[in-house]
């Protein structure tokens, strides 16, 4: 049984079909990359999975349970976690508290004391343990992204949805993040979906399977290298060969 199943999911905003009849299966421990140009429906897909929006058509099944119309806060304890493209820290709280909030209300459901204790562990996994006491709003955009990853991991998810988590990072940071994601994926059998607009080289090193979105539809799905060499994918990124 797959961990997450999307059955012909559609979401419209007025006349625009943001996600058009998309079906997708994700298994436990999968590493999947979702790529696609700006406006291809990636973020809407995430919002449908995490419960920010409900679909107009189709079903979403998570861990055997129909979650199509389940409110966001009831999905999270089942084992969903996500980061945001533009990080959304709880600004006036410390970095440690931010991560602890993840541990308190995610699948881990820890009490306050244990959550604050374990937060440091996740901060050191992503390598920002020195920032624990800092007010989250004072972090750089990059540090915020590391913090969001730690917060998502602290939730002990079965499925982790990463939204452009590596954008803007230097190669050393990208290496570290990929290393972290690989490790949690293997150790805790977390399925990781990573959404990427550019940074193709990062996706080739991390994802086993890639889904390409284009104009709300699933254009191609398959093994990473096959997909990225598919002429249709090359075309939506680079345009048609003219000579």
């Amino acid at each position: 049984m797959p961990l997450l199943e999307l059955h012909r999911v559609t979401k419209r905003f007025g006349g625009i079909v943001a996600v058009d009849n998309v079906s997708l299966e994700i298994d436990e421990g999968d590493a999947i990359g979702i790529v696609g140009p700006n406006g291809s429906g990636k973020t809407t897909l995430y919002n449908l999975i995490s419960g920010v929006y409900f679909p107009d058509n189709g079903r979403i099944i998570f861990d055997g349970k129909d979650i199509t119309f389940l409110p966001a806060h009831e999905r999270t304890p089942l084992g969903l976690a996500r980061t945001f493209q533009i990080p959304r820290p709880f600004g006036s709280a410390s970095v440690r508290e931010n991560v602890a909030i993840g541990a308190m209300f995610g699948r881990a459901k820890l009490d306050v004391e244990s959550a604050l204790d374990i937060a440091d562990h996740y901060l050191s996994i992503v390598g920002i343990e020195k920032l624990a006491e800092k007010e989250a709003k004072l972090l750089t955009p990059l540090e915020k992204r590391f913090m969001e990853l730690a917060r998502a991991l602290a939730m002990k998810p079965k499925l982790l949805l990463l939204d452009e988590v590596m954008a803007g990072m230097n190669p050393a940071d990208v290496d570290r993040i990929i290393e972290v994601i690989r490790r949690v994926k293997d150790e805790e059998r977390i399925a990781v979906v990573s959404m990427v607009e550019h940074l193709m080289h990062a996706i080739t090193r991390f994802a086993e399977r890639v889904v390409v979105m284009h104009q709300g539809k699933k254009l191609v799905e398959g093994k990473t290298l096959d997909v990225l060499n598919d002429p249709r994918v090359v075309e939506i990124y680079l345009g048609k060969r003219v000579v």
Binding site: F84, F90, G102
Partner: peptide, 8 residues
């Protein structure tokens, strides 16, 4: 909104 997605 972020709080809701965090399970609150």
């Amino acid at each position: 909104d972020a709080a809701r997605v965090m399970g609150i």
